[in-house]
Amino acid sequence: MTGMTIAEPGEGKNTLLAVEDLTVGFRTARGYADVLHAVSFRVEQGRTTCVVGESGSGKSVTCQAILGLVPRNGRRTGGRILFAGMDLAAADEATLERIRGRGIGMVFQDPLGSLNPLHTVGAQLRETLRLHTDLSELQRQKRALDLLAMVGIPEPEQRLASYVHQFSGGMAQRIMIAMALACEPQLLIADEPTTALDVTIQAQILDLLNRLKAELGMAILFITHDLGVVAEMADTVVVMRHGRVVETGPAARVLSAPEAPYTQTLLAAMPRLDVAAPVYRQRSAR
């Protein structure tokens, strides 16, 4: 297991992203409700931080908030999001537009829905490059080809002229990753990027992310509810529940000796090959 030597969050001096006391609320039909309560965690340079938790725990809202993508009825009411010496929580839209796709790339759960069905994959890749780089049209085309090759897509030339309906979910996610990494961001936010994929494809995508992380030296903020994926990816784990951070720590420690009761329950709920029935008997006896 990697990441054994990582210091507890807050102590590292290589902090790339620091979320401090982030509080976000939503206006709903039944009134105003906070969905994030003073969430704090750090992402170290070149490391993978996994945010794990059940549905509705606030994982996705947290990463939306980092890029200022919280839906219109939501609002940040407190806290800071420090990235590269800047407070993203206080940044205006123009500043955020420069960070999005350039300093921080993002991939989503539904790769087939994340690509525009009416434009070629190449046009969308080149769009990212045109927004954030000074490359000429020819250079952009070449860079797009290199990016597709980088994420392991065969016949990239032909693929650039294809539309999303001609791709499988796994292929589309590779393209989304290529697009997110087009401008070599320091941080990649991956919001459940393998949840919608088959298990074998999921393993391929995780391998790809680990390989690119090593090659490009970026940090990854990985959102998932799958503890198996956490074990595969994480250097640091942030466990969330009901909009609060329940536990933070190095992956090896959190997974082997969880401190918070919720983390213990979460780990106990994971099916295991070596201990079959007792886990469930124990829970139902309560």
């Binding site: 999005r100 989503f108 927004l131």
Partner: peptide
């Protein structure tokens, strides 16, 4: 989702 994704990449 693709409009959100476009926003997330700085469009």
């Amino acid at each position: 989702q693709y409009v959100v994704a476009a926003r997330a990449k700085g469009v």
